[in-house]
Write a protein that binds this DNA or RNA. Structure first.
Lengths: 196, 196, 196, 196
DNA sequence: ACTTACGGGACACCCCGTTCGT
DNA sequence: ACGAACGGGGTGTCCCGTAAGT
């Protein structure tokens, strides 16, 4: 019981550090020193640094990002309306910290995809799941006649995901929350034209 | 005596390595050793690692990316047509290597923006210049009545940039050139609706 | 498991090297390599080079030099007699090695005082303690009427310390043990004139 | 003509740096950069680092320190009176900078004597010359009956030199000009007892 | 009488990981 | 379930020195 908590505590601290410094810049030594624990504790739970990174992806980043979109699966109304609300809620949660560190999902994709397949496959799996949720919701909307039959669900789902990623990127360089909000507004407007 | 050439040679090799490993993962010593150049030469041109990174941004990444969009400034026709062609040419140049390492501009933004203001400011300057070129072209199009008066040039310019960044991201995780091409097609279609 | 011993072993080896090469000339890596110890062990006990230097001052030089004079505190007879004996014993211990490397206290004072306050303060504390021991002994001697009431204990204590330092210096340049012995004889004679 | 000046300029700058950092801590690269000249100039005048150190000793330290005592050679009065005046003038010149960096002669003796015979021999030659001047002056005083016949000129000359060295040492650790002045006062008093 | 380009060997420090305890 | 001692390979940086030119 103490077990689970210590592991989680370590993992979350490492995650915090990784958000700023990246995986390669993550310094396990320093993080545990700040936590007041020792190497023994760290290596008790994680055999090496990569297993830390994988655990962060599997246990924190994945659940968090998929969790944002899961409700769309159960949602019965117009998926485009749902997405507009989703965007709004993400816009509201978007803080000064976010604009600095950006999206941990994006960051890892850029940093680790070319370096390690273990990372890439895990990150791809997350992205694919989100893509599938959006795609299926759009397809359902088409079947129910509340979403434009013109659009291709798979393609638009990618475009939406791409829009999020891109918004994170440009707001991060510009260090501007406003830019993030405005750009997602543009995306929102575009999605609005697909409603029936 | 081969001043400019040696420096440039070193810089380009370092740039290649950085595209794969990131700035933090860049191992300057190893790269120059491969070139048959010694540390003395490296230190002669670059007093420290950050000066390498800054030089890569200032002398390679900046000119390259801004160079892509510079012709738009001189272009006299419909800017949206120009951009469709630009996208097409980028799509054609997009290779297997690109899908693995992604966009060096994107990568540096994600990795270094939160870590070092020197990087962030340089990268922001590049992005801002491209944004300005697009924005001004769109505004000109509006004045000439060949671009929809509804759209807001600044906002759309960001959306376009964001679309590129996002396309790089999702194609990088998915390791799929097709996804890159398809997603930019979606963007292209969207831009097409703005033409008059 | 051999915690204390390993640390002490490392420290003493480093001390030996520092006596010859000075603190700046001390090459920690090489010294421990000779001992068959690795950098991991060194870094475990000493996070950086200054912590090595400080430890040498605090744990070796300080105790050694103060230890020479500590018996004077407990001594009940004429302090000037004690000092004559002290000088004699130092003269006898003075070896060929000493004349080459000189006094580690002197050496560090000259090398590190202007460079680092951490060193200077530690060295000053050692010198001050010795000074205080001598001063108090002289004052006691005056109260007991066995030491000339003319002399000022604090000033003479400094003169004695200065005499030692100076003797180390001149014998070191001249590479002559005889000079060390003779010069302290002159000091001894001078002190003899203060007795009552 | 320009030649001689440049060489001297370089030498004096290097000397300044060496006073603070010692010979091993002397960074020729940095000094010349501060002077706005390049490696070529430095290595035009000095083949290597040791020749710099030797030149500093031979051309700056030697002449300066011997210069302090040369007038004693020509002096016709009581040498002990001359020395009292010398001490007074040194006390007056003694500044805040001196108390920090100490005596360059002392510093080099402590740092370089055990490391390099080239330095030791040069430094010894300087010390010996000063010693000889003092010794001969004292001997002359004895012949003229104005200096106590009891004292041994050679020994007292060493004691005087040692007194200076020691005073530099203790004032340097204590970072106290007062201590330097007071301690030389004690020496002055001692010398006064030798007059006839 | 200098300058620029370059060679190249350290050297301090970092930090991942292992082992042996309890 | 965790702690202390230790292994050990880098990694950026420093900085002395050389060669070829002008």
């Amino acid at each position: 019981m103490q077990d689970k908590n210590t592991r989680r505590l370590i993992l979350e601290s490492l995650y915090e550090d990784m958000q700023v410094n990246g995986f390669q810049g993550l310094r396990a030594d320093k993080v545990i020193k700040k936590l007041g624990i020792t190497k023994g504790a760290l290596y008790h739970y994680f055999p090496d640094k990569f297993s830390i990174g994988y655990a962060i992806v599997d246990e924190i980043i994945g659940p968090t990002f998929i969790g944002y979109w899961l409700p769309l699966k159960a949602y019965k109304g117009n998926p485009l309306v749902f997405m507009e609300k989703s965007i709004q809620s993400i816009q509201k949660q978007f803080s000064e910290k976010n604009v600095v560190v950006g999206s941990p999902l994006s960051n890892l994709i850029h940093e680790m995809s070319p370096l390690d397949e273990g990372f890439r496959i895990r990150l791809q799996a997350i992205v694919n799941q989100i893509h599938q949720i959006i795609e299926q919701a759009l397809a359902r909307g088409q079947q129910e006649g509340i979403v434009s039959p013109q659009l291709k669900p798979a393609e638009l789902a990618w475009f939406i995901l791409s829009g999020f990623e891109g918004s994170y990127s440009i707001s991060k360089v510009a260090k501007s929350t406003e830019l993030f909000v405005e750009n997602l507004n543009t995306l929102k407007q575009y999605l609005g034209t697909m409603k029936i």
